[in-house]
Amino acid sequence: MEQFLQQVVNGISLGSIYALIALGYTMVYGIINLINFAHGDVYMIGAYIGFAAITYAKLGFFPALVITMILCAILGVVIERVAYKPLRNSTRIAVLITAIGVSLLLEYVMMFFVGAEVRSYPKVLSGEVFHLVGVVINIQQIYIVVTAIALMILLQFIVHKTKIGKAMRAVSVDQDAAQLMGIKVDSTISYTFAIGSAFAGAAGVLVGIYYNSIDPLMGIMPGLKAFIAAVFGGIGSIPGAMIGGLSIGIMETLVSGYGNSMYRDAAVFAFLIIILILKPTGLLGKNTREKV
């Protein structure tokens, strides 16, 4: 039982990380239907910006986090303006290839400048460990879970209670109609990228601190897993991304803990395929009826 509880704790902390990345993913996907492969790499860049801010500028945790979020937001907007905007009216697959190009570009530019070697993160948060009814919990795990939930609530608030959020929802339903209603589609999309990328950057810093290890290719797998989490929870749905991330984290942990750790990723994918077949729009996704 103790072991099971411990595994659930492990799963929740892992899942929160996927959820953190998936939140930004699902926003961007929700608004322009683009699998933004570069999202995982913005997360990686965020980890490096945080690293630089803490190590070289000697900043504390919160200033570093804020700077990272701002810089990542700018990066996200630049990527959107330069690489995706010219392709607004092209096929989605063309934009997807561009996203892959941007992703490779970010990875290899970073590798060129910082090298391929992993780096350890400076210690800015205490890594204190405490025991709760036989379960070991790291204080950083709590930071991650709390941050993920806080960001989710913040996003929910932005999307449902603010003007810009209303614009985002309108654009995601119908771009042309939104434009006719006087919504600035371009700037709304830019805002979405800014927010999504800022969240990715924050996730990068938190993961860097928690796992204490960053490298230029660190964004590939979590990016993919986060996308799965977003699809799993229902693309475009913010609570869905959270639930998707947590479910995948817990599932991975339980498969590793009670089954064969080597089939962990395979089990996640298999489960995803089953979910998609049973409920093609994901857990909380809205069903849209197709009209001819």
Binding site: A83, A94, L104
Partner: peptide, 19 residues
């Protein structure tokens, strides 16, 4: 810089000739 050039070309080609 081969991978950087490759990635850049990919983006540029897609922007100027998405089809």
């Amino acid at each position: 810089v081969r991978m950087i050039i490759y990635a850049l070309l990919l983006v540029v080609i897609m922007i100027f000739r998405p089809q």
